[in-house]
Simulated assay, not measured.
Amino acid sequence: MTGRVLIIAGSDSGGGAGIQADLKSVTALGGYAATAITALTAQNTEGVHGVLPIPPAFIRQQMDVVLRDIGADALKTGMLHDSPTIAAVCDGIAVEAPGIPLVADPVMVAKGGHPLLQPDAVEALKRRLIPLATLITPNLPEAEVLTGLRITDEAEMQAAMSSLLALGARAVLLKGGHLEGPRVIDLLGTPQGITRFEDSRIETRHTHGTGCTLASAIAAGLAQGMPLAEAVARARRYVRAAILAAPGLGRGHGPLNHAVTVDPARLP
């Protein structure tokens, strides 16, 4: 087990997204995951039915005690919910974890449409969190909110990249899964240029937690010393394998098989 990742995100009671997906992903890729929980959600494959925020001081305490004792080789943020939460998390990173790679997933809306970030917190996300990030991983709707641009095809994805990088993150993985068509295209942008990733689309309703899973898998790679592009490539392969092996649970957007890398037959 190599690579310590501190995950700062919300809990998904259904186990398919959020902290639960993050823990499974990092573990499945051979890393060690610790957590600071920012919110509790009552959630299943059909949607989010309730949200209970965690007091910012307690979020900060979770971060501080883990970082002082266990430490971290990478950080990953997910659902941060509101401006006080973002402020607490950013203050904690600045004090306890300066220079540690941060993968920031700008979680705004759940798969079923429930808002997970308060509207007035978007500016706090842009002003405080994104400039701390090694990588941000917006999907297209999130990128549209962050930039104010309409993104409907690959050309517009490429055009939006400069605006996303201008927010201050060192790199952006712009995920194109919301575009229609038989191929899924993601773009990894840095000041040095754009790397294009492409795969055939998997037609399935079992995609709950793909964003959380991808970001955590990338964080695991960075914690293990992988270059960014290699960490992204491995994380995309992992997410694809987990979708293909999805267990088919629930009546809505079902979870992935995060244990796709695990072989119980290898136990002594």
Score class of each variant (00 low, 15 high):
T2Y: 14
I8M: 07
G10A: 08
S13D: 06
G15E: 11
I19P: 09
I19H: 03
A21F: 07
D22S: 05
L23G: 08
S25W: 10
S25T: 14
V26I: 15
L29M: 14
L29K: 06
G30L: 13
G31K: 04
G31N: 05
I37R: 12
A39P: 07
A39K: 10
A42Q: 02
N44K: 08
V48C: 07
L52C: 10
I54L: 04
P55K: 09
F58H: 14
I59G: 05
Q61L: 09
Q61A: 02
M63E: 00
V66A: 00
V66F: 03
L67R: 00
R68F: 06
D69R: 15
I70N: 02
I70V: 14
G71C: 09
D73W: 06
A74E: 12
A74K: 02
A74C: 11
L75S: 03
T77S: 12
T77Q: 08
G78T: 13
M79N: 12
L80W: 02
D82S: 14
P84L: 04
T85E: 07
V89W: 15
D91R: 02
G92F: 03
G92Y: 01
E96S: 04
P98W: 05
P98Y: 10
I100M: 12
P101F: 03
P101M: 01
V103P: 00
V103Q: 04
D105H: 01
M108S: 06
V109I: 11
V109R: 11
G112Y: 12
P119W: 03
P119H: 00
A121Q: 02
V122R: 05
L125T: 06
L125N: 03
K126G: 08
R127W: 10
L129Y: 08
I130C: 00
P131C: 09
P131K: 12
P131G: 11
N139F: 13
L140R: 05
P141E: 05
P141N: 11
A143Y: 09
V145F: 08
L146P: 05
T147L: 07
L149V: 07
E156S: 14
Q158V: 10
S163T: 13
S163W: 10
A166C: 04
L173A: 09
L174N: 03
G176F: 01
G176D: 10
G176T: 01
G177D: 04
I185M: 12
T190W: 11
I194V: 15
F197Q: 01
E198I: 03
G209Q: 12
G211E: 11
L214A: 03
A217Y: 02
A219V: 09
A220C: 15
G221W: 07
L222A: 08
L222Q: 03
P227L: 15
E230S: 05
A233L: 07
R234M: 03
A235Y: 07
R237V: 13
V239M: 08
A241Q: 15
A245I: 09
A245C: 00
A246D: 14
A246T: 08
P247A: 13
G248N: 04
G252P: 04
L256A: 07
L256W: 00
H258Q: 02
H258F: 00
T261H: 13
V262S: 02
V262W: 15
A265W: 13
R266Y: 14
R266H: 15
L267Q: 13
L267W: 12
P268T: 14
